[in-house]
Design a protein around this nucleic acid. Structure first.
Length: 260
DNA sequence: AAAGACATCAACCGCGGCCTG
DNA sequence: ACAGGCCGCGGTTGATGTCTT
């Protein structure tokens, strides 16, 4: 696929856009293997590829680079993404730094195709406090439970005290064929701690901003949280949390409590 | 089986920051 | 100090695959 640009120079007129061919991939891969990353405009120039430096960089980082992982974002990774996004917002490259092998593009796509979609279905603004609290107090604890369930199914340990240790061990067990961790264990530990705190609301400041009910007292907060936590724990099914069934469940939950 | 709707993901674009001369 | 080039980031688009009717 070759389209011309509106630029006037002959060079600009012959720039290739669109999907990369195997041949182009091979040329780029071989060049970077020999010369290393960087100087992307030079890469484009010296390889003879009719691509911009930007395009070469993107193709390398998102596709050709060794250890790049695509598809099947694990629960641990989803949990990390949700947590890190709650801290940093749309800082995709920063978030990607903590998910080895994952690219900012992939994380961004995950967020837009899964999380934003679910927010729409819940008729929430994705950046609204209501939706963020839903993620934090319903989805994240639920993800954690699933991760724990996966871990306990492969481990004899089942005590609550061993929860975090088990979780981290599980994360460590998820390494790719090249031995790269799928998740940063120290970060996952931090995430699991904060998400686990959701099971013990008393640990939070009573005026904590995390209030699924949208501004009630601390006592109603605790009581309501227990309710949500219990229902979340019992109401979801399936291996994928982002299912229509679960969204309907949440919609009902929000409607019942006049949250929308 | 075909067509339309929807979901996913690779790639492009514009902008801002940094570096260098 | 500043202008130009390069790089990286985040937002958006378009192609392709999958599902539904």
């Amino acid at each position: 696929m070759e389209r011309s640009l509106s630029g006037s120079s002959e060079e600009e007129m012959s720039i290739t856009k669109g999907p990369w061919t195997e041949e182009e991939d091979s040329v780029l891969f071989n060049y970077i293997t020999v010369h290393g990353e960087g100087h992307w405009n030079s890469v484009a120039r010296y390889t003879g590829l009719k691509r911009t430096g930007k395009s070469c960089r993107l193709r390398w980082l998102n596709y050709l680079r060794p250890n790049v992982r695509r598809g099947n974002i694990t629960l641990e990774e989803q949990l990390l993404i949700l947590d890190l996004h709650s801290r940093w917002g749309n800082r995709w490259s920063k978030i990607a730094e903590h998910l080895p092998g994952r690219t900012d593009n992939e994380i961004k796509n995950y967020w837009r195709t899964r999380v934003v979609k679910q927010a729409k279905q819940l008729k929430c603004e994705v950046n609204s406090k209501q939706f963020r609290d839903t993620l934090r107090f319903v989805w994240m604890p639920r993800m954690l439970e699933r991760i724990q369930a996966q871990a306990s199914s492969s481990s004899s340990s089942s005590s609550g005290q061993a929860h975090q240790t088990t979780l981290i061990s599980n994360a460590q067990a998820h390494s790719d064929p090249c031995g790269v961790m799928t998740t940063n264990p120290s970060l996952l530990s931090e995430v699991s701690s904060s998400a686990l705190d959701a099971h013990a609301p008393s640990l939070y400041d009573s005026s904590a901003s995390y209030n699924l009910m949208g501004g009630g007292s601390s006592s109603s907060y605790s009581a309501e949280y227990c309710y949500y936590s219990d229902i979340a724990g019992n109401g979801f099914g399936g291996s994928d949390l982002w299912t229509d069934e679960n969204i309907c469940f949440l919609q009902q939950l929000l409607a019942d409590h006049d949250l929308s």
